[in-house]
Design a protein around this nucleic acid. Structure first.
Lengths: 365, 365
DNA sequence: ACTCTTGATGAAAGCGCTTTCATCCAAGGA
DNA sequence: TCCTTGGATGAAAGCGCTTTCATCAAGAGT
């Protein structure tokens, strides 16, 4: 006789001397089965090493017990961390996590989501508000609950969990203005198809405008999220002779790059130049100078997103919009601007690696 | 009449005026179907917005077209990056990625893998050789191909893709010895249930031993992989009065922590203390001083792992052991040891934040 | 002209499970 | 004592697809 390599529920049922239906119930709804019967079935399960067949279960029950999460990239530690906590939470509820990344390409994202829909995920987690209309159509057609994270949808059309990137960025600008900075520059991620980056730039602009200040376009550089790109960007800004005392960065990775470049050029942070980040990754507080940044409760986002999604899948209701608190953390990378003669001077054509000639250390603030 | 929310293959078949089997074939093996028929079916697919039902397909075909990857943590950028490339490669082959993480807990790993097996993944990717016996049993019973990454299995019992952590670590020690260092200390990740960390410590020990040098147990600190922990560890080593001129770190994150702590204590790297890392994350080359470390082709690992797994799932054969080249990258964090009177002195009970009194800058090497 | 291939298509049997719906039996009510 | 009620169980119908296997033309071979 040919033994199959694995046991089916039918085999368990036969071994326990019950019908298939009873065996199924014993596993799904133990209360509906007499304790004696139940334990016979559980014995059989253990003895045969029975492992339920997910696909069969999904097909019959129309629920896959999987959740899909799509992020721009796992290389940004904030996404990696939140995916991590998300996974932990849903795993403990018996769900599995399907992940996808698209590298900030909205068309690629549609492909990824479509693969998830095909797999019959019970819910989808998205990052931000910028998505292809086709993606929204796909999700609507499949009637799969989805949720926007890392941003809030003020219109409440979609379920969202996050914070206002605009307001948070504005508070950074506010802090800098209170320090009496009046000349700003910004290094941002690409704003096309990235609403978070766009909102952060807008937030800074608005806050400045409210005080009659400007953030001219040529002082806003949009670059890939990498340390090397950020270093190069600060270099370009400086080499172009821009005179600013505060540099707002779109996230901590970019800010770190700026800090590194400033150090390499002998520019003292914060005395000659104030630098801010966004996210509060671990390095932000450990680096020297420690980075003034916006603290995000990264792990909480994964956890709450899991919670909300599980509730909705279970037929429960959650508020359309869940705002999580974020706040400015002032550390050592910001200080009042230097007096005029202590400002960072644009370096010469010699390659920009020279320390500013006007560099003079100011006292501690 | 009640319309279903989505189209089934039966609906497509009816719309195209063919049988279910033909429709199925048209999608799976287009060559077996007459071009005219095929295009009628494709029209119907497009018109109805048909999306195949993954679970049904998996049930009928006994292949889920999903691959599971289990890593210790996504917070380490090397895992995040390799998962990223892995995803890209398998997605382009029509596969979906199920991820799991276990936080260096082997029992938790069994749970995660068991969830993947239940989902019927076609293959599983694991990190390292240290796993619960139960995990191996589970995978064997389900007859699912799996692969070890980030380490090689010299016994060739399992399929593995990686490099010798031991040899790589030894080459770091070798470099340091060539610089004439004789007093070593090491900051490692926890070695229990982490063969990579264990092998790296062993590699350093062996290399030293070959030259009659020792790495005493009290100079090896095992800590969690975080910058803060690494800073504290170096502090403890120093405060304990250990005298060493070379600090080998288990990975770049730990090395970064050490660099930061050294800077905070006014210890000049590399002139007073040489520090090495392992992994070559982006920051390693951008940081100042740039870190001497082992370069790993992180993206390649994800890519090759995907390739090998897809081949095996497709019934193909690959070598049991795939060794990828890694190499030492010498940068600015290592130099010959200082002369005796320039050594780092153990700081006093005052908290260890004072620069070493004996600190004297040596010239460039 | 007749059988033999060959290639395209269709019919139908599951894949392993969930989920009505029906059945049975013991206890409670009249 | 008979009938009702409800709890436990079983029978059976799918869930949407893949995959033999059978069928049927139409061209090839003799």
């Amino acid at each position: 006789m040919t033994r199959r390599p694995y046991a089916r529920l039918t085999d368990v049922a036969r071994a326990a001397g019950v019908s298939l239906s009873t065996a199924s119930r014993a596993l799904a709804e133990p209360d509906l089965v007499l304790p004696a019967t139940r334990s016979r079935i559980q014995d059989a399960v253990a003895r045969l090493g029975y492992v339920p067949h997910g696909a069969a279960r999904a097909l019959a029950s129309r629920r896959s017990r999987t959740i899909g999460a799509v992020v721009p990239t796992l290389e940004n530690p904030i996404f990696a961390t939140s995916i991590q906590t998300l996974h932990q939470r849903i795993a403990s509820a018996g769900y599995t996590l399907l992940v996808g990344s698209h590298g900030y390409d909205l068309d690629a994202e549609v492909q990824v989501v479509s693969a998830l829909v095909e797999r019959g995920v019970d819910g989808v987690l998205l990052v931000g508000l910028d998505h292809s209309p086709e993606l929204y159509r796909l999700l609507a057609k499949a009637a799969i609950p989805f949720e926007i994270t890392w941003a809030t949808d003020p219109s409440r059309i979609h379920y969202s969990l996050g914070f206002s990137n605009r307001l948070a960025a504005a508070s950074v600008a506010q802090h800098l203005m209170e320090l009496r900075h009046r000349e700003f520059a910004m290094i941002s991620g690409e704003t096309t198809s990235n609403d978070r980056a766009r909102e952060r730039v807008a937030g800074v602009r608005e806050a400045l405008a409210a005080h009659g200040l400007e953030l001219p376009a040529h002082r806003v550089l949009e670059i890939p999220f990498s340390i090397a790109a950020a270093r190069a960007a600060l270099g370009r800004l400086l080499d172009a002779g821009e005179r600013f005392t505060a540099l707002v960065c779109g996230n901590d990775v970019l800010a770190l790059g700026a800090l590194l470049e400033a150090a390499a050029r002998g520019i003292a942070v914060p005395h000659q130049l104030s630098v801010t980040g966004f996210d509060d990754i671990e390095l932000a507080s450990e680096f020297s100078p420690a980075l003034t940044t916006i603290h995000l409760p990264v792990a909480d986002i994964g956890h709450i997103a899991a919670e909300r999604m599980l509730t909705r899948i279970g037929g429960g209701e959650v508020p359309r919009l869940h705002e999580i608190p974020v706040h400015l953390v002032v550390r050592a990378s910001t200080a009042p601007p230097p007096r005029i003669n202590e400002r960072v001077r644009n370096s010469t054509k010699s390659g920009g690696r020279l320390p500013s000639r006007a560099a003079v250390r100011t006292g501690r603030r």
